[in-house]
Design a protein around this nucleic acid. Structure first.
Length: 102
DNA sequence: CTCTTGACGCCGG
DNA sequence: TCCGGCGCCAAGA
C-alpha cells in the first residue's frame, strides 16, 4: 500500500515537527488546507509508522489511543513540555508554530 | 444507496 | 474529571 498525494502532504508535515514539539490532528488538516482531523488520523493509522507519530496528538494534549505508553517514552526522551499531571502534553507550550524557523 | 467506524474536536452537564 | 451528543469526512460492509 502506497500513500496517495493527500497522505504524502500529511506525512511531510509530520516529519517537519521538531523534537520536543507537537501538532494536533486538526492543526495538520488546517496547515495543508485539506480534509479534517479524522482524515489526518486515518492517514496516521495507515502510514504513521514511518514518521514521528508521537508528535501528532489530540487537541487536548492526550496521546494516540494505540500507543500511549510509547508516546510517553518519546516525550520524556525529547523533553516535551507536559502538564503537571504528566499524562498529557502542555499544548500551550509544546504546540509547534510552522512559521518558527526550523 | 444506507449504515457503521474511526490514532478527532468542541460544547454541555 | 468523566461522559454523552453532535459535527466532521472518508472508507468499508
Amino acid at each position: 500500500m502506497e500513500p496517495d498525494e493527500y497522505s504524502e502532504a500529511v506525512l511531510e508535515t509530520v516529519e517537519r515537527i521538531p523534537p520536543g514539539k507537537v501538532l494536533a490532528y486538526g492543526d495538520i488538516a488546517e496547515l495543508i488546507g485539506r480534509g479534517g482531523p479524522r482524515q489526518v488520523g486515518r492517514v496516521m493509522s495507515l502510514f504513521g509508522g514511518g514518521v514521528p507519530w508521537w508528535r501528532v496528538i489530540r487537541a487536548d494534549g492526550s496521546p494516540p489511543r494505540c500507543d500511549e505508553v510509547r508516546a510517553h517514552e518519546h516525550w520524556r526522551a525529547e523533553g516535551t513540555p507536559l502538564r503537571p499531571d504528566g499524562r498529557r502534553v502542555d499544548m500551550a507550550r509544546a504546540r509547534w508554530n510552522p512559521d518558527d524557523p526550523a
